[in-house]
Nucleic acid binder design. Structure first.
Lengths: 225, 225
DNA sequence: CGGGGAAGTTAGACATGCCTAACTTGTAGC
DNA sequence: GCTACAAGTTAGGCATGTCTAACTTCCCCG
């Protein structure tokens, strides 16, 4: 519960663990963290052990790595920071939404709580970042985001509520096609295993979307948006 | 000449060495750096040795520490970053000018070159920061700033061109008295060794300024401002 | 149901940046 | 000029975070 400063490394670990379960139920393993954080497996083992001691993570040997309540609280602080910074870069400094991730990754460890709050105020207390991801409140509350993945969406009219920022290349590709947050589109033919759906973005021509791109897009039925 | 990333530590060292000679000719010694950087003397010895090897500093043993041409170039990059960030915090996020130093101290190591340029653009390419310190150009050119120290200024009419940000407490005190950049004032009685000057800020009452506060203020004759 | 490969862990090493303790150097004042 | 003390350096150690090599555990598949 204490507010001692965590190292940038510790902050990264809890954030990545939390992020793994935001949209999917990816089990968090040593290998997963090792790939996501670009460090070797032994490094993860070592650091996870320390974070277990620090009360932020739980880990059954050879098994899953999960957040404690305190770990989740700290993770949400980092997610809030990250998304506020991204929103600032895009809306105030005209960064492309595919260019902000790395910058935010560094800045989130360097900004004081006061600076984050000041940015939040400057931006008008946004609820979503430019990708459509919800921004946790200072207290750590996250708006529930319902949505259907475009790779599995049925034929019909939809509104884009979120585009995953995991792959900047995909982000650029989708932006070029007009698939951005709040865009309206029609699914003409649903995607199936391995093949993407056929869609038509309002104001554009029908097109076949590659499966990887489609799975980065989340939708709400037009009626509910 | 290469643009390899310097560690935050290395960036701090060259910046502090440069800053020591910006307004005064303080000789840069191990002890000076040790106090300014809040580390022990052996730590400074060690790190200076590394920076000499890296070609950023020169150091005659037991003697003065100076910048190489390359060291100065890197120092000016850091000063530019620091002052742009401070300007941003004050003008866009409503930080008090006595509150920005520590925040900028951290951020200057975390911002990409692109972010600095974007902030510079957002601010309209300012030539001075909120304290009146000149902002080096991207190429490392610094506007020459002439000025007389208020502690030694003669009787007459002056314009404040700069207030040293070394001591936040002094900064607050001066701001409360109306002694801010671009303020006009009259020196009624010059300061002398140990005793501050008597001044009158335009629109205010005459007052005796403590010597430490006076020595933080730099002036230009009203006629030349 | 047992062997083999993938995943995970342990062990030992290294780089950076920091410290204290002990030693060396330079110099100011007698 | 010599000495005492401040300043500087060297030596040795610690914390964090990283690695590779070697070993252990798990579990899937034949």
């Amino acid at each position: 519960m204490d507010e001692a400063e965590l190292s940038a490394t510790a902050q990264d670990y809890v954030k990545v663990v939390w992020s793994a379960t935001e949209w999917t139920d990816t089990p968090v393993t040593t290998k997963f963290l090792s790939q996501r954080l670009n460090v070797s497996a032994p490094t993860v083992s070592e650091n996870v052990r320390k974070l277990v001691t620090a009360g932020l993570l739980e880990h059954e040997p050879y098994g899953a790595i999960t957040l404690t309540r305190e770990g989740e609280r700290r993770a949400l602080q980092m997610v809030r920071r990250h998304r506020i910074i991204e929103t600032f870069l895009v809306t105030q400094l005209r960064y492309g939404w595919d260019e902000v991730h790395d910058e935010a990754e560094v800045l989130e460890h360097a900004c004081s709580a006061r600076l984050i709050d000041a940015l939040d105020g400057l931006l008008g207390h946004p609820r979503r970042d430019p990708h459509g991801d919800p921004i946790p409140s200072p207290a750590g509350e996250v708006d529930a985001v319902e949505g259907v993945n475009l790779a599995a969406a049925a034929v019909g009219r939809w509104v884009v509520t979120r585009v995953s920022d995991a792959d900047p290349e995909v982000l650029r590709e989708l932006a070029a096609l007009g698939v951005v947050v709040d865009a309206r589109l029609t699914v003409l033919r649903p995607g199936e295993d391995g093949s993407g759906p056929r869609i038509e973005v309002d104001g554009g021509a029908p097109l076949d979307l590659p499966a990887p791109a489609a799975s980065a897009v989340w939708l709400l039925p037009e009626a509910r948006a």
